[in-house]
Amino acid sequence: MLLRDDFQPRWKLALKWGWLSFAVFILMAPVFYTMYISFNELGFGAKYYIFTFQWYESVFSDKQLIGSLGWTMLLAIITLPIVIPFGLLSAKLYKQSQHKVGIVFVLLSPLFVPADILGSALLVFFKNLNKFFTLISEYTGIYVLESWFDLGIMTAVIGLIVYTLPYVFVVIMITMARYKVEQTEAARDLGASAWRAFWEIEFPQIRAGVFSACAFVVILTFNEYTRTSLLKGGFDTFTSVLISQMLNTGMSEESYAMASIVSLVAIIIVSIILIVTAIKTEELEKITRVVKEPNK
């Protein structure tokens, strides 16, 4: 059956596509502009534009920037193996639970709480935890837990876990939506352990979602500023270097180049995920069509 709007003139449809493309372009415009400046030999604010790769060549000589990238990478590497299993378990719990509202509330609320507010609350929480454990240590003479929550890598990682878990949960939930629980039940009926049923039956089918979640965690770690800057203690992350340059001395040309590289890497990773997901979805739909109508 045709919809009423199917009689719409072509120009109206084109206009709507134009509006959508314009919105995407506006959202991406700042990124394109950063890339544009990064190729100018004369840097930001110059009257003339001379194309160069000079800043990309010299970007790796900026020790502060490279050091901050190393720290950020370390945070991502530590966060990843913790947040992904949490996300998987949360998604499984959500699917099986009768109290979905509570789980959704706890897991998705961090998306709504502004970074500065959550960061401030966690900062004071960690400082209080530290004081509490110091008191316990003095009282019991056991100093194992003392200084555990000093601001540093661990507190920054906790902040990142709270920040990235909702994204991981949603991405894994999307892939899990296609999985039929009956397959796990069949495997269990045939004598497979819960772990084996998950690892050999369910995981291969949700693998794409898990890898996408991993990519998102790395990208979000590189992008995160507020919570990490409040909780990181002494070291610098990539975004904290960028912000301090922006607000104090102005961004160096190398920083524009590095920002462009990081943005481009993020865009390429997400694009690969999108293309692979699109291909996989199409393959799955073909299989479904063949199963439903084998003679066609």
């Binding site: 959508l20 995407v24 959202l27 991406m28 415009a29 700042p30 990124v31 502009y33 950063t34 400046i37 930001f44 604010g45 998102f216 990208i219 590189f222 992008n223 500023y225 975004t239 960028l242 912000i243 922006m246 961004m251 920002a259 990081v262 943005s263 993020a266 865009i267 990773i269 997400v270 694009s271 999108l274 699109a278 979805t281 199409e282 739909e285």
Partner: peptide
Amino acid sequence: VAQHRVMLLFILPFMVSEIIRIFALRPI
């Protein structure tokens, strides 16, 4: 079949650091 793919176009800007996007708005 294409709806999610079009939606994902809006994920791209989300995946670029907010700081870079906001700061680049200044000169624009």
